[in-house]
Design a protein around this nucleic acid. Structure first.
Length: 285
DNA sequence: CGGCATGTTTCGCC
DNA sequence: AGGCGAAACATGCC
């Protein structure tokens, strides 16, 4: 599940922890910093997020949670997101990578916060280094986006997946944003016009906003079912077909009819193909 | 059984 | 030098 949207959902869910005292910490040393034992007795002072990283600020130092592919957060016994697309629906105790008990004890749920991660690609860090992360995708301005992309010689999808460029986009959200913006994943960043960047920014803001309200990265037009089924392109007015191929090392679902720009096709802009540049307003879902 | 998976990092090859 | 693809990590699921 975890892209920036999921981390944001968990950030909200974790807010009730603020003001509590950490009584006990248990963790899996294979994926967690051993210094986490030192947090017993500290107070939780705030919950933040940058990109895909959730940060718990305490009276000591900060705890950073990275969820990998299959990690999820459970607060006071409730999972804010219960369906994990590429992880088991199960919630086995031996998949817990950190457990935090607090006081006051919140009702019948003994564990106040835990990360459950079957595949164990997630990490729990002390004082996470956020210095290499680009601006957060949920608050980025057009100028920041333009600046972040400036000088990049990679394909557009590869650039957006790079957390040093923009922090928080994962495979599903990048495909969704590019689909909505009408931009090809293999478009050369250098070929983007100012209008393309504006459309990209708008697609990020609008599409991700909708998906966040609906529950995360799986709630877009290119949801997991459509990603496997493919078929006709669901963009309004588009006569193309969805395709799935490896781009930037990841499975990429897109439509080469209305998503254009850069790449082998040259530097055509979406508008030049007779398609409204900002497809985010045109997607019927 | 083979292949694939919402992520990150490393390594070798242009 | 910098970009890219493949592999590794680790495990579950279809």
């Amino acid at each position: 599940m975890p892209e920036g949207l999921e981390a944001e959902i968990w950030r909200s869910a974790a807010e009730p922890l603020v003001g509590r005292r950490i009584d006990r910490v248990e963790f899996d040393a294979r994926v967690a910093d051993p210094r986490l034992v030192d947090f017993e007795g500290e107070w939780i002072q705030g919950i933040r997020r940058h990109g895909k990283v959730l940060i718990v600020d305490t009276s000591g130092s900060a705890i950073g949670l990275r969820f990998g592919m299959t990690g999820r957060l459970v607060i006071d016994g409730a999972a804010a997101i219960d369906r994990l697309e590429y992880a088991s629906g199960a919630d086995r105790p031996d998949w817990d990578r950190i457990r935090v008990w607090t006081s006051p004890v919140p009702g019948p749920a003994a564990v106040a916060m835990r990360m459950n991660d079957p595949r164990r690609l997630g990490r729990i860090e002390v004082d996470p280094d956020l210095s290499l992360l680009g601006p957060d995708v949920l608050g980025i301005s057009i100028d920041e986006l333009d600046e972040a992309l400036g000088g990049r010689r990679t394909g557009l999808k590869a650039a957006l997946m790079n957390q040093q460029v923009v922090a928080g986009l994962g495979n599903l959200c990048v495909d969704e944003v590019l689909f909505a913006a009408g931009l090809a994943p293999n478009a050369a960043v250098a070929s983007l016009s100012a209008d393309d960047v504006r459309g990209l920014h708008r697609a990020m803001r609008d599409r991700l906003g909708v998906m966040l309200r609906r529950g995360g990265s799986t709630q877009g037009v290119l949801d997991p079912a459509r990603r496997s089924r493919l078929g006709r392109c669901p963009a309004r007015g588009c006569q193309g077909y969805l395709r799935s191929e490896k781009i930037g090392g990841r499975t990429t679902v897109w439509c080469n009819t209305h998503q254009v720009g850069g790449g082998a096709g040259g530097t055509r802009s979406p508008a030049s193909r007779g398609v409204v540049p900002n497809a985010s307003a045109r997607v019927a879902d």
